[in-house]
Simulated assay, not measured.
Amino acid sequence: MDFALSQEQQMMQRLMRDICSDYGLEYWREKDEAKEFPHEIWDDLTEAGFTGLTIPEKYGGEGLGMEEIVAVGLALGRHGGGVSGPNMLTLGPVFGGISLTEHGNEDQKERWLPEIVDGAIVSLGLTEPDAGLDTAGIKTTAEKDGDEYVLNGTKIWTTGAHVSDYIVTLARTSPMEEGSRHQGISLFVVPSDADGITTNKIDKLSMRCLGSCEVVFDDVRVSEANLLGDEDSGFYHVLGTLNTERIIWSAIPLSAGELALDLAVDYAKEREAFERPIGKNQGVQFPLAESKMELETAKLMIYKAASLYDSGEDCSMEANAAKFIAARAGSNACDRAIQVHGGMGFADEYHVERLYRDVRLARVAPVSDELVKSFVSTNVLDLPRSY
């Protein structure tokens, strides 16, 4: 087994660190307070080619895989971006690039992939108010009318929809039938400025600079040319995208945990109490050492899941396990960073409070801890289905 990053991956991490040097912790704090999308760094990521990372060279991209997404995501998060920074990579390379590369026809690829390379923002319209994580239970419909589909329904927690160019949207094209809940769902590329779309930002605890939105579809018409993949098979098409989302959402809390650990170590070296650095105390050292070990262990599972995906092998268990373990490791690291900072851990100027708020999301989204355990119980351990 080779655990070393390739020279190309190391080079990309160095490039990402260089970009991040212009966007320090104060930049992310200001964006968080203003609840403002970080357009400036998005433009720099686009110029550097990161928005086209997973897109084939034929369409102007880099033609790389999830290992590279993980590598640059970890660098982006650890060097200032925390949770929000690497999550931006879902809004192009993953939701748009992978979905279209895997399921789009040639006309669709030629039409949309170069736009994503050039920085088009793509959201995923999946979750609904009543369905939650029960994707098969969605109620948004897409009815055929001539050479168009008419969409009606509501999506929720659609990240970046207020600034996106397109929303890859799941909608039911055939009625749900007993014994076939996952059939009859289709995937569409919907322009965000289409008539009939209303987008409302949700006030929330974490990741405030990447707005999460309610998106209402009211007789929204899209051409049949916007149907992605086969009609009624959208649920199965989106499964691969969800595995890649879980992989990047493993790197997100991990990198935030690494950043929190870095901040805690620096503070422990500098802060003095009782005439000695607090980092001299094992009560401070040991929790930080635990976080380092937990984060490194989680990283191995993340790269394993990414490697399996890039090799075309099933990575469902590994992607879910990586997300579960990394979310725990990242959350622990941020919690311990607060403890090391003491009262100052609650002050905005020390940044760990924001990481603490943001990283909590990773245990709920894009899939909850409980559903990951149910998936592994049923699909890996072959226990009776519980849901």
Rank of each mutant, 00 (worst) to 15 (best):
L5Y: 05
M12T: 03
Q13L: 01
L15G: 07
M16P: 06
S21L: 14
D32R: 01
E36T: 10
P38W: 00
P38D: 07
H39P: 02
H39N: 13
W42P: 03
D44N: 12
T46S: 11
F50M: 15
L53V: 06
T54E: 08
T54C: 12
G60M: 10
L64A: 10
E67M: 13
E68Q: 14
A71G: 03
G77S: 04
G80Y: 06
S84Q: 02
L89I: 13
I98C: 01
L100R: 05
T101I: 08
T101L: 05
T101H: 09
H103K: 08
N105Q: 10
N105H: 06
Q108C: 05
E115W: 02
I116T: 00
I116F: 01
G119F: 05
G119A: 04
I121R: 00
I121F: 06
I121D: 00
S123H: 00
G125V: 02
T127M: 05
T127D: 04
A131W: 00
G132C: 01
A136V: 01
T140D: 00
D145I: 09
G146V: 06
G146D: 05
E148S: 07
Y149T: 05
N152V: 03
T154A: 07
K155W: 01
T158H: 06
T159E: 09
T159S: 15
Y166P: 02
S174C: 04
M176F: 06
E178A: 12
E178D: 13
G179R: 14
I185D: 00
F188H: 08
D195G: 01
K201E: 08
I202L: 12
S206E: 15
V216E: 10
F217Q: 01
F217K: 07
V222S: 08
N226I: 04
N226S: 11
L227G: 03
G229I: 05
E231H: 08
S233P: 00
Y236E: 10
L239F: 02
G240P: 06
T241M: 14
T244V: 11
R246T: 12
I248C: 01
A251H: 05
A251T: 03
P253R: 02
A264F: 02
I278L: 10
K280V: 06
G283R: 06
G283E: 15
Q285D: 00
F286I: 15
E290P: 00
K299Y: 02
Y309M: 11
S311R: 13
C315H: 02
S316P: 08
N320G: 15
K323M: 10
F324Y: 14
A329E: 03
S331P: 02
D335H: 09
G342F: 08
F346Y: 14
A347L: 15
R357L: 14
A362P: 00
A365R: 09
A365V: 03
V372H: 11
F375I: 00
V376K: 03
R385D: 15
R385V: 13
